[in-house]
């Protein structure tokens, strides 16, 4: 397994762990008048993600110093671009579809819209790193 694939696994796991923590709060967030703590939950999950990611990166860099110093080659750059393209569609469809549902079906206010965009972004990142892993496994 290449170093870039390892980092894709680490990032994917970090996002999934943090997302699961965040999703435990979602039923409360769907309340018509979510308080400021909704934003606190978002901020806390972002902070938790950064901590997990930084610690994991340090561990990987210490364990594989040679691989960590090697710049991405053309195949790895192509894989990243293909994964970003997939994630872009997920984000656009998720954000626009989610905003439509939030405004016309649920009737939530600006915090609800922010939450929908945040969830669409997180989903797109999960898809991006999952796509990277799939492309790495397939060879390109």
């Amino acid at each position: 397994m290449s170093f870039r694939e390892k980092t894709a696994w680490v990032t994917l796991l970090a996002i999934v762990i943090v997302s699961l923590m965040y999703w435990f709060h979602v039923p409360n967030m769907l309340h018509p008048h979510p308080g400021a703590w909704v934003l606190h939950a978002m901020a806390a999950s972002i902070a938790a993600y950064i901590v997990i990611e930084v610690v994991a990166w340090i561990v990987l860099r210490v364990k594989y110093p040679q691989d960590a110093r090697t710049p991405r080659d053309e195949r790895e750059r192509l894989i990243d671009l293909k994964a970003i393209r997939v994630a872009y569609y997920v984000f656009i469809v998720g954000a626009i579809g989610g905003m439509f549902v939030t405004l016309h079906v649920v009737g939530a206010h600006v915090v609800g819209l922010g939450m929908v965009i945040y969830i669409a972004f997180v989903l797109s990142q999960i898809v991006k790193h999952a796509a990277r892993i799939v492309y790495f496994r397939r060879g390109g």
């Binding site: 290449s2 195949r75 790895e76 397939r138 390109g140």
Partner: peptide, 16 residues
């Protein structure tokens, strides 16, 4: 390039 990229090229999974 990385060893994995050489492997992918050799196996015909990636055209360099």
């Amino acid at each position: 390039v990385t060893r994995q990229t050489i492997n992918a090229i050799e196996a015909g999974k990636y055209s360099p």
